[in-house]
Each structure stands twice: as structure tokens, then as C-alpha cells.
Amino acid sequence: MKLDQRPTETARVLSDKSTLLKLYREMLLIRRFEEKTAEMYQMAKIGGFCHLNIGEEATIVGTVSALRKEDYVYSNYREHGHAIAKGVDAKAIMAELFGKETGTSHGRGGSMHLFDHDRRFFGGYAIVGEALPLACGTGYAIRYQDKPEVVMSMFGDGATNIGAFHESLNVAKLWKLPVVFVIINNQYGMGTAVSRASAVTELWKKALAYDMTGERVDGMDVLAVRQVTDRLVAQARDQHEPSLLECVTYRYRGHSMSDPDTYRGKQEVTEWKERDSILKFGEYLKRERLASDRDLEAMDVEVMAEVDAAVKFADESPEPDPKDLFRDVYADEAAS
């Protein structure tokens, strides 16, 4: 369903103006944060691999905003925005990208390994599919301890072809784990289109093999994503029924900062950008008289200031102390 065909229904689900504005703000923050990240990468302030979320904001905010503070998120290496959406401080994220001691992982992880224990952002993992079994383990612990919590496991379309994905869906259903698996289908795994990598191109259908709830949603429509996620999270929390949610979206930039992006047409990229989720959601907010152009511009200024403050914080933060090279290899320092 198109946004403009569905305003009243959505407004019921998300009747609160401040919630809607908050969703918009988070999407914008992720967009501006990532744009700045690209800039900082080009200035060599950031090293290593760096994968951006630009284009995927509605999918990220629509899913993660449906969680409570005590719910868990496991992610992959394209996770700056996922961390922001889970409430991780933008300052600490930028500091991590800069490799600073004040970063989320004290400069030991970098772009691909953000982590925040208190926010229950349980990490960015750089091995495709690796974190799905971990999400199941945390789901098992939740059931074991009889807690009302949920785990969200976020990964790409490419990850649905690896063994760990299938092992995870199997036990999630078998053991009734409160896990929502979110496929961020951005059409490509590096340069390989979904149709060239997966025998089944409607990825939600992979849930059918495990007798699990499978859903597909327009990942460029934040309210649609939020709506279906609300339902799947409730199902996980109340009935311990896992699910597989495919969000159909797009990344505007290359796979990583070093990708020259030669495997797809310019026209395709342009078409997806015309459906930009932030643009569309902004138009919706204006049409519904929930915000004016001025409001949205003011929000943008505010968000950019937040991003600038994050850069300043990262820039001014200290490097890790060389004497701490071996810190935290083991939980007991004597063993390090």
C-alpha cells in the first residue's frame, strides 16, 4: 500500500505526532551521520572497511523503533544506523570509527564492530551470517530466564544463502525463540544481485521451509515497516514465535567506501532515489500538517549540529594507550 492511501490507518497505529517526528528525525540523523562518515573517510579520519546505510533508513528505523530498551539487536558490519536507532550515542559511534578510546568498542573494533551493552546493541559482526546463531542463543537465554524480551537479528540478502541462516531459522522455530530475523534486502551482496545468488528471489519465502511466519514489506516506507514489525515483535514476545521479515530496500552508495559501483545501472540507482524514504515521509508529515517545511529544515539543522558535535568529540578524543594493547583479550587480565 502507498503511504498516501493509508494515512488514517497508519495514524491510528502511530497516532502520536511526536513519535512520527521522532521516526523522521532518526532517519535523518542516520542519513546525515552516514554522509559525514563518507566525508571523514575521504579525509582518512576513518580507516578499514566502511559500509554505509544511506538509502536503508526507513528499514532500519521502522524495525528497530518497534523494540523496547531491554530488547536485543544483533547486526552485521553495515550497522552504524542500526546502532543509532537502538539509542547508541552518535558521539561514541563516530569516535569508534575514528579508532578512539572513547568509541563504543574503545577503538578495538572500528566501523564493523560497534557494541553497546547497556543499549543492548549486541554488536556488529563482519562475517556474513555469523550473528544469527548468536541471536538464537540470546533468544534461548531469554526463554531460559523467562524474560519478556525479544531479539532482533539484522542481516543482508546475501546472508540468506549461508548455512548459519538456515541452522538459525530451524532452531528458532524448533525451540520457539523470541527472535525477529530481518533481511535488509538492498538487492545486492557486494556486486552480486539477489537473482544471481539465490534460487528463491522472494527471500521471505525461505521462512516457509521452517514453518515460520514470513513477511515482505516495502523497506522504503517507514510506517509500513514499523507496522509489520510491531506485529512480529509482539508475536515473538507474547507467543515466542519467531519470524522472518524481508524489507525491500536499496543502498545508494557502493557496497563499501572502496566500491566503484560498476555492476548496476545509473538509471536503477536514480529510480530508487526517487522513492527516497526520508523525502516521502517528509512529504507525508507536511501533507498531514504534522510538520511544516520550516520544522523539517530546523530539524535538519539540529541533526547536522549533532553530527558535527560527534565529529568534534571523536576528533578531540584520545587514542587508545599503547600499553593497553593486550587489555580485554581475556576477562581475567592475568591470562592476557
Binding site: Y74, P133, C136, G137, Y140, Y144
Partner: peptide, 19 residues
């Protein structure tokens, strides 16, 4: 199940949540 990756991964994820 006979799925070693999920056995070890489940152990890790459960340990991270306190078990």
C-alpha cells in the same frame, strides 16, 4: 540438531545474555 555452527553460536549468544 546436527548443526555444529548453531550449537557453538547458541552457546555464545546465551553466554552473552548471562548463562
Amino acid at each position: 540438531p546436527i548443526a555444529e555452527e548453531i550449537i557453538v553460536g547458541t552457546a555464545i549468544g546465551a553466554a552473552m545474555a548471562g548463562l
